[in-house]
Computed example of a mutant assay.
Amino acid sequence: MALPNLLLIAVFTYVPLFNNLYYSTLNWTLGSASATVVGLENYVTFFTSADAGRVLGTTAVFTAATVGGSMVLGLLVALALNSKVRGTTFARSAVFAPYVLSGVGVGLVWLFIFDPGYGVLAWILRGLGQQSPQWINDPELSLVMVIIVYVWKNLGYCAVVFLAGLQSLPQDVMEAASLDGASSFRRFVSMSLPLLSPTTFFLLITTMLSSLQAFDLIRIMTPLGSGTSTLIYEAYLQAFGAYNRAGYSAAISVVLFVILLVITVLQLRFVEKKVHYS
């Protein structure tokens, strides 16, 4: 019964994976009918280039900011949505809605908001007598802009998962702590957070893997990758941009794959030890 699914996984996941490993050893221009085997030269070229530090640094900053921002804000939103007040059902839907929207559509809308010339934010700042920052033209601000939009789009996912975790907490234990005089803050820090560790661990893995593979928002909001060239976007630019360096792009993809694999193994090996399942 499992054989059809295993075949699909093999054909569409593992065959491309091993093909990409092979392509990373080639000096191959995209579209060319011939290629030269160069071994590990593409990897050496990447790690010795001036762009390696910039790309890896951008990837690290983007991942840390988006994962941390999404999880912290998602937890705060989940705490608010866990309150028994009117309108929480609508609020939950509204918070989760951006997560299911197309990244292309979200990027286009937020481009209109951030545009320093005719954007909504620029219009508001001009009304206050201020000049709009050059979000699109400044590489540092471009990264901040994409991080803001990515966190806004994905915090609903974290909020819904955290909300499910909060609603599964043992209420008798929480009520006993309340009767013993523990404040709301004390109950949250000493009881809710430790009991939420399986949820936090799950979100840490999924959001980190998602952030490392973020592409659509970066592609739409910063087509040239100015200040926002993460590993996956740098691989795209090298293969399908002005360079057409398919082998070099494949090597960057392999580097990203190794990073994803190492992070997942480390999380499963060390972080899970601090997770409380009971």
Rank of each mutant, 00 (worst) to 15 (best):
M1D: 08
M1A: 10
L3T: 10
N5V: 01
L8T: 00
A10N: 09
V11L: 15
T13D: 08
Y14Q: 11
V15P: 05
V15K: 02
P16A: 07
P16H: 04
L17G: 11
F18P: 11
N20R: 04
L21F: 13
T25R: 06
T29F: 08
S32M: 03
L40Q: 00
F46M: 09
F47N: 02
F47I: 06
S49V: 11
D51E: 14
L56R: 05
A60S: 15
V61K: 11
F62S: 07
A65W: 11
T66R: 00
L73I: 04
L73H: 00
L75Q: 07
A78Y: 03
L79N: 07
A80L: 11
K84V: 12
T89F: 10
V95T: 03
V100M: 03
G105H: 02
W110F: 13
L111C: 03
Y118P: 01
G119V: 02
G119M: 01
G119T: 01
W123H: 12
Q131C: 04
P133S: 01
L141V: 08
S142T: 05
S142K: 01
V144A: 12
V144D: 06
V146Y: 07
I147G: 12
I148K: 07
V149C: 14
Y150S: 13
V151E: 08
Y157V: 11
Y157R: 04
C158H: 07
V161M: 13
A164G: 09
Q167T: 07
P170L: 03
P170R: 01
Q171E: 10
A176H: 08
A177H: 07
A177G: 15
L179M: 12
D180Y: 09
A182F: 14
F185K: 12
R186E: 12
V189W: 12
S190H: 11
L196N: 09
S197N: 10
T200Y: 14
T200F: 15
F202D: 09
A214H: 06
F215S: 10
R219W: 10
L224M: 10
Y236S: 12
A246S: 09
A246D: 07
A250I: 02
F257P: 04
I259R: 07
T264K: 04
T264P: 05
T264W: 03
V265S: 09
L266K: 00
L268H: 10
R269F: 13
V271H: 03
E272W: 00
K274Y: 06
H276L: 01
Y277V: 15
S278E: 10
S278L: 08
